[in-house]
Computed example of a mutant assay.
Amino acid sequence: MSSSLTPQTPAPERRLPGGPVLQDSVTAAISAAFFEELASVGYARLSLEAVAKRAGAGKAAIYRRWPSKLEMTVALVCAVAVDGPELADSGSLRGDVLALLTESAAALRHRLPSKIIPDLLAEATRNPELAQALFGAVRDTRRAKATSMLERAVARGELPEDVDRELALDFLAGPLYWRLAVVHTPTGPDYLDRLADKLLAAFAA
């Protein structure tokens, strides 16, 4: 997760067919409560009753917006992880890679995504329905945006036409996630710069 993974829950005002306008303030409160509850208990133990209680709203207010826990999760996670501007075009591949790493590091260090992201990935291995929904909506969309970044670099002559795009996408995501979300190893102030340089060298190899 702009494409940042940090929860900043949007809530456009909308009207149900034949029903009242859904209030922005209530949607925002429910959304914020959802992320807090998800970070606290994980997807498997998440209940809509607990989200409603934390939000100070009725359970019916949730069902007027999302028909199930799965659809609520996918909609809100997509809203912060996918629905936003394209990755910044800095004019150079290194600048684009560094911007992507900086955004990703900020999300992985944030108190909510740092708990939510590993939990959802683990739950997806046990829940095929969640995996299909999240991977299709979040993973594939974000990889498509990162692919656009690589294509710009090819067009500028910074990468060869035959660059292994799939492997490059794995490199972009893997090392930083391993360091910050799996082994929780502190990083120095120049870590992202050094990682960006290593990634560029790997892309060109």
Rank of each mutant, 00 (worst) to 15 (best):
R142V: 11
P128H: 09
D83M: 04
R139A: 13
E123K: 02
P67C: 09
A99Q: 06
R109Q: 09
N127M: 04
K145N: 14
L93V: 08
D96T: 07
E123N: 04
A79Q: 11
G136L: 06
L87S: 10
I62S: 02
L76V: 11
H110Q: 12
L101F: 06
D140M: 10
L70Q: 03
L70Y: 00
A124I: 10
A79H: 14
P113M: 06
R111Q: 10
L100P: 00
V74R: 02
A57G: 04
A122Q: 15
C78N: 11
T141W: 10
G84I: 12
G56Y: 00
H110N: 13
M72P: 08
Q132P: 08
A57M: 10
D119L: 07
E129P: 00
F135H: 14
E129S: 12
A144Q: 13
L98Q: 00
Y63W: 04
L112N: 07
V138T: 02
A81D: 06
L70G: 03
P128G: 05
A57K: 07
T125W: 11
T125D: 08
I116S: 00
R65V: 07
L101S: 01
V97C: 02
D140R: 05
E123G: 05
E123C: 04
L93K: 08
V77P: 01
V77A: 11
A61W: 01
A124E: 11
T141E: 15
L98A: 00
A144R: 12
A137W: 01
A133N: 01
A99M: 03
Q132V: 12
E129A: 09
R65M: 12
I116A: 02
V80I: 15
P128K: 03
W66S: 00
A131T: 13
R94Q: 12
Q132H: 12
K145D: 15
V77D: 09
G136T: 08
A55F: 04
K145V: 14
H110E: 10
L70K: 01
D119F: 12
A107P: 03
F135P: 07
W66K: 00
R54I: 07
R109E: 15
V74L: 07
G56L: 05
T141F: 10
G58H: 09
E86P: 03
G58Q: 08
F135L: 15
A105C: 14
R142E: 09
K145T: 14
K145S: 08
D96I: 06
H110F: 03
V138G: 04
V80R: 13
L70W: 06
I117D: 02
A131K: 09
V74I: 11
R126E: 15
A105E: 12
